[in-house]
């Protein structure tokens, strides 16, 4: 579970880093039009991916229960209402 999260995190950061690079290149403005449009297209795609990742991510909360020999088991934690 932790590994999956880690991959997602790297994905997001990588996508964001590439997006930032694209924006820099576009801002530079010296590229031919076709290339600029292609870059923009890629940027839109990356932005959408990032947005989806952000919206999909949510806080997961588990409670740890200590068993004998100090082993820790997890179970879902439901918050008590106010």
């Amino acid at each position: 579970m932790g590994n999956k999260n880690s991959e997602e995190k790297i994905d997001f950061e990588q996508a964001l880093a590439e997006l930032e690079k694209i924006v820099k290149q576009l801002e530079n403005g010296s590229l031919p039009l076709e290339q600029s449009l292609a870059l923009f297209e890629r940027g839109v795609k990356l932005a959408r991916q990032c947005r989806e990742k952000l919206q999909a991510a949510e806080l997961k909360i588990n409670k740890l229960i200590e068993e004998r020999e100090g082993e820790l088991n997890e179970e879902p934690f439901s918050e008590e209402p106010d």
């Binding site: 806080l59 588990n62 934690f77």
Partner: peptide, 17 residues
Amino acid sequence: LKTLRLHRAHCRVLLYP
């Protein structure tokens, strides 16, 4: 927990009661 959600921490919380 409220604050973590508000600041959009995308993570897992392990509560040790």
